[in-house]
């Protein structure tokens, strides 16, 4: 187990390193002149040259990348006009827009994205698996047909459509809820929950559709396995077959996929964040993209990529823990 984990973590580190190298190469080398971007539109050539020196853009590319990695591990000192600005590890550099430390900006945005991801996961774990189990147990009935079509529609809907639908229904016509504005959990938990309700529903309902399909097919597959047939032949009731024997194996892939999805949520939540104006990592990325704030862009890609890689390891370990037949290798 320890060996497996070490191997996977080493692999993950390699993947993240390559990923950052690709990202770094794409974003710092491709555009015309990062110094001009960093300096802003009203800079004269001397100022640009100064910024160029400050960002050491004249160094060879591999040296620049090495400095970037160094900054991630040990931090970085920037000499500004007034003195030295220390950027603690992990340092992603300074924003071109306001010279703020990119790491701080990320940390600031994390709670909103995490709030969204946690709530949406709760919705899909409860509603998604519940619906899936129900539809697997009511095989052949009208319930199953309705649920099948509902989940199919759910998997085909982009989140901005479900989001707009919920907004129109609950904020415009029924006027039960105000238009969501983000309130940090630490400020006011009750307001936080009320305002997150629609984003959770918009994202969670769609994810639930996917999980309902997965749970259903997984349970049906498990019920068709030999050991279940044997239990049935011994006279086990349908209830104990599902509850005591099949459920565990059937839920294993659901848990694994949830863990993996939770990791990719940090990048994929961008649509929901933009839809509801949540100040999360995705929103940060979209703003950084439109203002060409490259350090922020690179940081978001790096962080979200790392989240995906790590979540996949967690997913595989959880899968093996939930279903002993799955071998980690």
């Amino acid at each position: 187990m320890t060996g497996y984990l070490l191997r996977r973590l080493a692999g993950a580190l390699a993947v993240v390193l390559v990923l950052t190298a690709v990202v770094y190469a794409t974003f710092y080398i491709a555009p015309g002149d990062p110094a001009r971007l960093a300096c802003g539109p009203r800079c004269n050539p001397e100022q640009i040259a100064q910024v160029r020196a400050q960002l050491s853009l004249d160094d060879p590319v591999h040296t620049q990348y090495w400095h970037f990695l160094q900054g991630l591990v040990t931090g970085h000192d920037y000499s500004t006009g007034a003195g030295v600005l220390h950027c603690d590890a992990p340092c992603f550099g300074l924003s071109y827009q306001n010279n703020q430390q990119v790491t701080d900006m990320l940390v600031e945005r994390l709670p909103a994205t995490a709030s969204l991801a946690v709530g949406a996961m709760a919705v899909w774990l409860l509603l998604g698996t519940g619906t899936g189990l129900l539809s697997a147990l009511r095989r052949g009935g009208i319930t199953e047909r309705v649920l099948t079509w509902l989940t199919l529609a759910g998997t085909a809907t982009p989140v901005f459509i479900s989001g707009l639908g919920l907004l129109m229904l609950f904020c415009a016509y029924l006027a039960w809820l105000p238009f969501p504005t983000y309130v940090p959990l630490t400020d006011d938990p009750e307001q936080w929950a009320w305002n997150m309700l629609l984003p959770w529903a918009a994202l969670g309902l769609l994810e639930s559709a996917k999980y309902a399909r997965l749970t259903r097919s997984s349970l049906l597959e498990t019920l068709a396995e030999d050991h279940i047939r044997t239990f049935r032949a011994y006279g086990a009731t349908e209830r104990s077959l599902v509850g005591r024997h099949a459920l565990r194996g059937a839920v294993a892939p659901v848990i694994a996929l949830s863990a993996a999805d939770f990791g990719s949520m940090f990048g994929n939540a961008v649509l929901t964040e933009m839809m509801f104006g949540l100040p999360g990592i995705g929103q940060l990325l979209v703003h950084a993209t439109t203002t060409l704030d490259l350090p922020v862009v690179v940081a978001v890609v790096t962080v979200t990529g790392t989240a995906v890689v790590l979540a996949n390891i967690v997913a595989d370990v959880l899968h093996a823990a939930a279903d002993r037949r799955v071998v980690l290798r």
Binding site: L285, T289, T304
Partner: peptide
Amino acid sequence: DVMVAMPLLVFAIALMAV
């Protein structure tokens, strides 16, 4: 492996910047 780990939407958005 690297491609699969790439946060697709994030990277595609970012690409538009450059």
